[in-house]
Write a protein that binds this DNA or RNA. Structure first.
Length: 840
RNA sequence: GCCCGGGUGGCGUAACUGGCAACCGCGGUCGACUUAAAAUCGGCUGCCCGCAAGGGCAUGUGGGUUCGAGUCCCACCCCGGGCACCA
């Protein structure tokens, strides 16, 4: 019998062929007759939808993809082995800037380069052995898909959730397109890092702000990491307060302001408008401040957003020469224009209460404006004071009241007088989806001279993206140059019309792809509602925390909006979310080409195999934490898989030889272990059952794949140690158990091991169950402490009583030594764990 | 400034509701096999004192609670992430 070698390059393709040939991971949708059954199964948790975030195909998948899909695949396999039907699909987020920028440089059509990347991703995913239902695969750039992206847009347009408006928008001069708020990080373009400018443009928006409260409330209903929930809360930024009207009598206009502190209304000593406020010019007209105001507004509107947003800078502003009347006390207070007031938030105007607001205080100091305290500080601290306290200097009706109580009464009074009302304000803005770029989903509307904005009728979808010769954007989409495409007939009046040339933000494409997987082959509709009933919501979603706000907020919004439109019945797309940590370069830094620390999975797989690479990404540390990559980890994993595989192969050979001698066949399936085991057999069987319990808990309750793998290694080590001292049946059971537990992480290696030992296919076996009787042993090591310090260890029978344990402990020579000459005050006994003798 | 994470050997990490700090892996080292190397297998490996038995010190820092704290409480330091003139 020759010693066999663990050869992943032979093993892995062999099993991949089996899975591909037999379409092992494909699942069917319910038929009309079984749909009720399917949604019942869904509700009972008998089916499961495991999904990793849609990859953007660019070049080759990197190590972060490997970790993402290794994680998701382990979960998918675990769910399947637990007896569930599992939907685990794959697709590609194919529209986007990198392919287009590549086209600008090289002239290669983005479709060509993208499809090449997709082919490379497909090859890699197959080579990794990820258990994907390939029958549902699609890419968002295919007309067959984006036809339905356009259909969703039209549904939103119809219902008023998509609209066009002129607004100050973020413009990235490098990418030559506008960006959503979410895509601007510290005043810079999320993609290219260039500073964005503010431009006044007419653009398409989606009314996500209508859903602010529901997006906030429903965070309670989903099982997501705390930090992601916190980030979404933060982003939505709900504030409760009141809207209060301040009247400018000279112009007879009421200006509403939003405030969270109507209890401080009596302390308002001036009033501030944002420089962009539409009435600034009108208000200043004819006053002596007119020129000064115009100059200030001009300056701040053109100031870089980064500069303007700098809190450290001294505040700037100019008086307008007009005043408004404070509705609660009739005082006239001056109007100022200052850039610390933002047009985008609230009403673009504020009442300033310098005594109780840090920013107003700084401004009042800067310009010598009056400061009036209206809330008493219980600690007599300095102004500004933002805390609670009793009302002072306000009005006899309110003075002396706790401010929170006064707040409610003041709001009630405002409502009664028609001068204000309770109000909620959100930081969230509407989602700007127009992009002046080529490689995206065309927005399906035309502009008709006679009819205005006309949606393209659904039966004319898709509006296909035409080919163009020149990709470089020039402030408008390159599509504008495709004259033959742009020029069209109005669907309503048949007169001359021009197509919208902006394309959609690619986040629109990825806001509904998880719905399409449920019914990917449907060409009559985006989905059949029955198909969604069978699978949605996604049971477990897995991806990077970088999408905490963007993608995850948009997808939630889509589900709510489409539910309201009656297209589906899912309020939350992702019931459970897991955000994986990043894999950092060997230097502990974020991987980047410029740092030269990028690790590619391909050479690792070529050298060690996919199983090793997958396990290595899971073993480096807790999967939700960042971890530095190390070649050593890979080698260690490879050694482990090789060791287990060889142990199994050698043992299988032994069994085969024995079988040939005796019965001429290999042994049948595993028989349950009898309770008559003893000695090393018992010890090894216990270890196997311990490992089953450990791996099951680590996978089901938390995603501790690192400790799950540790448990399998321990079991393997025990097999190796005891292999000569146990019966063939026990060893076979232990090795097969190791293989069975390993399957979600290293499916090829595990399938091979299991087949050699049992002749069975491991993925067709139920997940093993630990025998509780084998999880407890009758002899337990008890720790003997004196004053909390370990002085000895002693073996004791399980469930021994207190007196026995104390006596046993005091017998220990080293315990006795430490007790000598001391008075015992107390004996603490933790059954089956320790005895602590407290002495003085 | 506010909100999340995190800080444990030479390194990555482990430790369930307070109960043996360091499982597992890496690295190191000694040994076996080999002409030799690789691969593989086995021993040792937190630091200090000690020939040993054993003892002391150790989970970012300082306090506290407790028979007992990596774990709980208070104050602080450092690192990473998010938000930030949001009224």
């Amino acid at each position: 019998m020759s010693v066999r070698r663990y050869d992943p390059q032979e093993i892995e393709p062999r099993w991949q062929d089996v899975w591909a040939r037999e379409r092992t991971w494909e699942v069917s949708n319910p038929t009309a007759e079984t749909v009720t059954e399917a949604s019942a199964a869904r509700a009972a948790g008998d089916s499961s939808y495991v999904l990793e975030m849609l990859p953007y195909p660019s070049g080759e998948p990197h190590i972060g993809h490997l970790k993402n899909y290794a994680l998701g695949d382990a979960i998918a396999h675990f769910h399947r082995r637990a007896g569930r039907r599992v939907l685990h699909p794959m697709g590609y987020d194919a529209f986007g800037l990198p392919a287009e920028n590549h086209a600008i440089r090289t002239g290669v059509h983005p479709r060509a380069s993208t499809e090449e990347s997709i082919a490379s991703f497909q090859r890699q995913f197959r080579r990794w052995g990820i258990s994907i239902d390939w029958s549902r695969e699609f890419s968002t750039h295919e007309p067959r898909y984006y036809r339905w992206t356009q259909w969703i847009f039209l549904r939103l347009l119809e219902s008023g959730l998509a609209y066009r408006k002129q607004a100050a928008v973020n413009w990235c001069p490098f990418d030559a397109t506008v960006l959503a708020n979410e895509q601007v990080i510290d005043g810079r373009c999320e993609r290219c890092g260039n500073e964005v400018e503010v431009r006044q443009l007419e653009q398409w928006f989606l009314r996500i702000t209508d859903y602010a409260q529901r997006l906030l409330d429903d965070l309670e209903t989903i099982d997501w990491p705390d930090n992601v929930v916190a980030m979404q809360r933060n982003w939505i930024g709900r504030s409760a307060g009141a809207e209060v009207l301040f009247r400018c009598e000279e112009l007879e206009i009421d200006y509403p302001v939003f405030t969270t502190r109507p209890d401080t209304l009596f302390g308002a000593t001036f009033f501030v408008l944002a420089p962009e406020h539409p009435d600034v010019e009108r208000l200043a007209a004819g006053t002596q401040h007119e020129d000064q105001v115009r100059e200030y507004v001009n300056r701040s509107v053109h100031e870089r957003p980064e500069e303007r947003g700098n809190v450290e800078q001294p505040k700037t502003g100019v008086a307008l020469g007009r005043s408004v009347r404070n509705p609660v006390n009739g005082e006239l207070i001056p109007i100022w224009v200052a850039d610390y007031v933002l047009m985008e938030y609230g009403t673009g105007a504020i009442m300033a209460v310098p005594a109780h607001d840090e920013r107003d205080y700084a401004f009042a100091q800067q310009f010598g404006l009056p400061i009036r305290r209206v809330i008493a500080d219980p600690d007599d601290g300095e102004l500004p004071y933002a805390g609670d306290g009793a009302i002072v200097n306000s009005h006899p009706d309110f003075d002396g009241l706790p401010n929170r109580e006064a707040l409610e009464r003041i709001v009630a009074w405002l409502e009664k007088e028609g001068k204000g009302a309770a109000a909620i304000s959100y930081r969230l803005r509407d989602w700007l989806i127009s992009r002046q770029r080529y490689w995206g989903c065309p927005i399906p509307v035309v502009y008709c001279e006679r009819c205005g904005i006309v949606p393209v009728p659904v039966d004319q979808l898709p509006v296909e993206l035409p080919d163009v010769a020149e990709y470089a954007p020039k402030g408008r989409s390159p599509l504008a140059a495709a004259e033959a495409w742009v020029s069209t007939a109005c669907p309503t009046c048949d007169g001359p019309a021009r197509r919208e040339t902006d394309t959609m933000d690619t986040f629109v494409d990825s806001s509904w792809y998880f719905l399409r997987y449920c019914d990917a082959g449907n060409d009559a509709a985006a989905w059949d509602p029955d198909a969604l009933k069978a699978w949605m919501p996604v049971t477990q979603y897995i991806g990077g925390v970088e999408h905490a706000i963007l993608h995850l907020m948009y997808a939630r919004f889509f589900c709510k909006a489409l539910s309201d439109l009656g297209e589906l019945d899912v309020q939350e797309p992702f019931a459970r979310l897991f955000t994986q940590g990043m894999i950092l370069g060997p230097d502990g830094e974020k991987m980047s080409k410029s740092k030269g620390n990028v690790v590619s999975p391909r050479p690792i797989i070529e050298q060690f195999g996919a199983d090793t690479a997958r396990c290595a990404t899971l073993y480096v540390g807790p999967p939700d934490q960042d971890a530095a990559w190390s070649d050593r980890t890979v080698e260690g994993m490879h050694r482990f898989l090789g060791r287990l595989w060889r142990l199994a192969a050698e043992h299988a050979d032994t069994l085969a030889d024995a079988g040939a001698d005796e019965a001429g066949s290999v042994p049948g399936p595993l028989s349950p272990l009898s309770s008559s085991l003893e000695g090393h057999d018992l010890r090894l069987a216990r270890k196997a059952h311990w490992a089953i319990a450990k791996v099951t808990a680590d996978m089901g309750e938390r995603f501790a794949f690192n400790t799950a793998i540790t448990a399998i290694i321990e079991l393997t080590n025990e097999c190796s140690l005891l292999r000569a001292d146990v019966s063939a049946a026990t060893l076979r059971f232990a090795l097969a158990t190791a293989g069975s537990l390993l399957f979600p992480f290293a499916p090829h290696c595990a399938a091979d091991i299991y087949e050699q030992l049992t002749g069975e296919r491991v993925w067709e076996q139920p997940w093993p169950a630990a025998d509780p009787a084998l999880l407890v042993s009758e002899e337990i090591e008890i720790v003997c402490q004196v004053n909390g310090r370990v002085r000895a260890r002693v073996s004791a029978p399980a469930s021994a009583d207190r007196a026995t344990l104390v006596a046993l402990c005091r017998e220990q020579p080293n315990v006795a030594t430490h007790l000598d000459g001391h008075e015992v005050i107390k004996e603490v006994v933790v059954p089956d764990k320790l005895v602590n003798i407290v002495a003085r």
